[in-house]
Design a protein around this nucleic acid. Structure first.
Length: 268
DNA sequence: ATGGCCGGTGGAACCGGA
């Protein structure tokens, strides 16, 4: 079973590119981020025509996530637990019903910039960086709950985290950025240390593997990228890992997103 | 040439992204 994550940066602007990718990569399940659409106007027909069920968790203008699946979905939930006041559409979950049930979490983790710190160097409450770190604590709590339930699961999406220096072409320019600050990497490592596996790094080592290239400054042509889209696997899911990869070539096609798809193949 | 963009909104600039 091939499961992919793709930050499309606007579903309306990316519909043709998304369908071209679905036709060439044929994932069984795809989680999307930054659909930038409410649920009702989401353009579902061209995706459904390709055999996918479409479940969205959208909002106007910003954020928004979705799950596309060729297999039946059950128990769909929207929103990351832990803060009823959080109205940003960044989390969707569903159980993919195959021969073994797999819980799939699709996520769009907050960017966190600009980083605002107080005199003690702590994130300013109410600021975007504090929101990012609090969101990651909620994600960690959700992962702990799913681990306790002992159902195989994965958490796939745009993490807005550069895990290691080798995951950036120019790590030094990212040192103070919310994507690479120590607190951000610590939070990501705390999540992984619950027992999750970074699927891509279980298959591919070394530098030069990116999932995002900025539209600005010729980043793609200079291969000035960062690896920020990840698939984390629960122990039971990691035992089923057959392969993982990044569909880098998508970035060079017409009207690309600034992100490319990242995928795993599980023996399911 | 060391700067260079893009999508959504709303119908012109501006916000947000990373």
């Amino acid at each position: 079973m091939k499961i992919a994550t793709f930050n499309v940066n606007g579903i309306k602007a990316r519909l043709d590119a998304l369908c071209d990718w679905l036709d060439s990569a044929h994932p069984d399940v795809a989680v999307l981020q930054e659909i930038k659409s409410e649920d009702a106007p989401f353009p579902r027909e061209m995706i459904e025509d390709r055999g996918y069920i479409v479940e969205t968790h959208g909002q106007k203008s910003f954020n928004g996530v979705a799950i596309l699946s060729k297999l039946p979905l059950e128990d769909i939930t929207r929103g990351l637990p832990g803060d009823d006041g959080d109205t940003q559409a960044r989390w969707i979950e569903a159980t993919v019903v195959g021969k073994t049930a797999l819980r799939v979490c699709g996520l769009y983790l907050p960017n966190g910039n600009p980083v605002e710190l107080d005199a003690d160097g702590l994130p300013v409450a109410g600021g975007k960086y504090a929101y990012k770190l609090a969101w990651m604590a909620r994600q960690r709590a959700r992962a702990a709950d799913l681990l306790a339930a002992e159902m195989p699961f994965l958490m796939a999406g745009d993490y807005n985290i550069i895990p290691q220096a080798e995951d950036a072409k120019r790590p030094d320019v990212w040192r103070a950025d919310a994507l690479f600050r120590l607190e951000s990497r610590d939070a990501f490592r705390q999540l992984v240390n619950l027992g999750l596996t970074d699927a891509f790094r279980a298959r591919v080592q070394g530098p030069g593997h990116y999932s995002f290239w900025d539209y600005q400054a010729g980043a793609w042509n200079r291969d000035d990228g960062i690896r920020i889209d990840h698939v984390l696997l629960s122990p039971q899911a990691a035992d089923l890992l057959r392969d993982a990869g990044i569909d880098r070539d998508i970035r060079g096609r017409d009207k690309p997103s600034d992100h490319v798809p990242v995928w795993v193949d599980l023996d399911l």
